[in-house]
Design a protein around this nucleic acid. Structure first.
Lengths: 223, 223
DNA sequence: ACCTGAACACCGTTCAAGT
DNA sequence: ACCTGAACACCGTTCAAGT
């Protein structure tokens, strides 16, 4: 999409440093991610990015079309942290468990990207496409019917995104407050879950992931 | 939380019309929801709500603490549309399928609420608590081990929220664009899914929901 | 008690002007 | 080609002043 994709007669820019100016996609993305890491997504403003780079906010718009595009750059970097290597080495079930756990863990720290990603065309993100390729290859090698691979991937991904959002919730999110008393079954279940001492979000993620993968494998029609 | 919950010596306000002023929680919530229905969540600004009510924006703050609280009011109303009645009449598996489908369908039209809800304490939403009670009762009647009920509910809910986000994605979201060619397994799977003629998001939702429920039932330890 | 109007402290983004 | 500074068109929210 960028330097790597300037074929033919496109105005070719020298590899490495640009000819003039201080800014760069790489520099902007890096500074942005640093801001997010230290202050969360509320700290990510065009002003803050510009300040971190010692430049005026309007200067950024010579290199990035919008804040939305900037967030796609961040997504590219974040997505690169997802570990999908297990598909090449492990049976599908275990590879899926590893991949999904890695995927979720990373997006717990980047929850504000989720509504964006869920809606963004993957064509803008080569790394995401590469990840899908590895996952799809895993399903194929396991003998899955081709037409069931995409729905299965999307289903797991939807669960991952939902779980990552859920993991950002406060621990006492289910506290019934003033409404306690009218909801015996729910309160009983809540008390029992608490008694296990498990983190609720983590517990739900593991339970749901195991269930979904078990269910997908059970319902799958193989070729 | 509101008029209905003013026990004891709390300053009781007459039912129906307030003593003075034009505004009201009911009126504000209704006008807000109307804005959302007609123009989506980008149309929901404090200015727009005020304008719809023929009042100045600052007037709203006599009745609502923040836009965030206003969105909680909307959530209350939206949540009321989720159909959890099947738990009282149907076996757990079928009740879960119905409930989840209803839940997702509703939140496809209210995706911007999802990041909010996933993080909001349920104590502020009696209707949400009531829904959880019905779902928990369904699990209990089916003989589930108490400590597994909450994780199972949260897992399904996470999947629902993720799927609702996914359903707002453009149809061509998976189009590999310029990166086509390097990703044979993914492209093959994509072509096969397309050949079915099914809506991709719908397909993934049904596949994932069936899988998760199958898996939860298979992995469950009953009492 | 509740509403108005002005003001505040932000946003992201545009654009003429400079180099 | 790239940066600056001023400006624009918004946000949500506060607050003194009125009734």
């Amino acid at each position: 999409m960028q330097e790597s994709a300037t074929p033919g007669g496109a105005p070719r820019r020298r590899v490495g440093r640009p000819r003039s100016g201080v800014l760069d996609r790489e520099l902007i993305a890096r500074a942005s991610l640093k801001l997010v890491t230290s202050g969360g997504y509320t700290a990510l403003t065009m002003s803050a990015v510009a300040k971190a780079l010692g430049v005026s906010p309007s200067a950024l718009y010579n290199h990035v079309e919008s804040k939305q595009e900037l967030m796609q750059w961040i997504q590219e970097i974040v997505m690169d942290g997802v570990d999908s290597s297990a598909f090449a080495t492990h049976p599908l079930e275990q590879a899926l468990l590893r991949w999904a756990a890695s995927y979720r863990d990373i997006f717990v720290d980047h929850a504000p990207l989720i509504p964006l990603i869920a809606v963004l065309p993957v064509s803008g993100s080569p790394r995401t496409l590469q990840m899908y390729e590895e996952v799809a290859a895993g399903f194929t090698r396991a003998g899955w019917k081709q037409s069931q691979i995409i729905p299965s991937i999307v289903a797991i991904e939807s669960f991952i995104f939902g779980s990552a959002l859920d993991a950002t919730a406060p621990l006492d999110i289910f506290d019934p407050g003033a409404n306690a008393g009218n909801i015996p079954h729910f309160e009983g279940a809540l008390a029992a879950q608490r008694a296990t001492g498990n983190n609720s979000a983590e517990d739900a993620f593991i339970t749901g992931l195991r269930a979904m993968i078990t269910g997908l494998l059970a319902n799958a029609e193989l070729d």
